[in-house]
Amino acid sequence: MFEARLTEGAILKKVLDSVKDLVTDANFEADPTEGFKLQAMDSSHVSLVSLKLHADGFAHYRCDRPLTMGMNLANMAKMLKCASNEDAITMKADDAGDVVAFMFESPGQEKISDFELKLMDIDSEHLGIPDTEYAVTIRMPSAEFKRICSDLATIGDTVAISVSKEGVKFSTTGDIGDANVTLRQNSEDDKEKMISIELGEPVNLTFALRYLNSFTKATPLSDQVVIRLSPQLPIVVQYVVVDVGYISYYLAPKIED
């Protein structure tokens, strides 16, 4: 059987809000040692989301054997919306069951809610993501990244991200004109405002803003976002929830035909 309790249930609500617009149906994997995981592609197979909540990130975690739980994410989101932000959330499933149960407990235990979501059989392709050294690693405030993506999407459909010693430049072009936003590394002690750029070699890649904007739905999970780039490789946009887990998005670059 599988049973996992998150005292801060709001994290699970935010995690779901971060993936439900990108992915319709997905298999969650509960693993005895690793924790609660999901890997899924969007319907166009252009992007991939990989999320993991570590087993020891839960207040209580029990998983007797690996368990795959196929869920419709919109329906899961409907149920989690019924939990208050202050509630603890417990997920439970039997090894051979066809439902997953969500229990929401208010902080004073004066309200307990039980919801059961029907599981589905989902054929999903699992991709192996190699451990790669990336040419560039950028750390910046997640709200700043969200702002840049949404601003540029009002001008154009794609963003060219070029990283050099000068900093990182986000550029777009549209019918009404052009836009460029350049960020430079700073020496902020305040971690929330820190911008750091680790540069192995200069990189210039173009991505669809629609997907990057969808990734920024994870902004409430973390004050900082980590962006990794290498020539000719998908961008990685990662939000880390300290001591709990992470959500990483991968997006294939646009290429010149």
């Binding site: 252009v46 991709l127 192996g128 294939a252 670059p253």
Partner: peptide, 14 residues
């Protein structure tokens, strides 16, 4: 013109 590649063209199926 620019084209969009799929993510599965970068990462192998396991």
């Amino acid at each position: 013109a620019t084209g969009q590649r799929t993510i599965s063209s970068f990462f192998a199926s396991t």
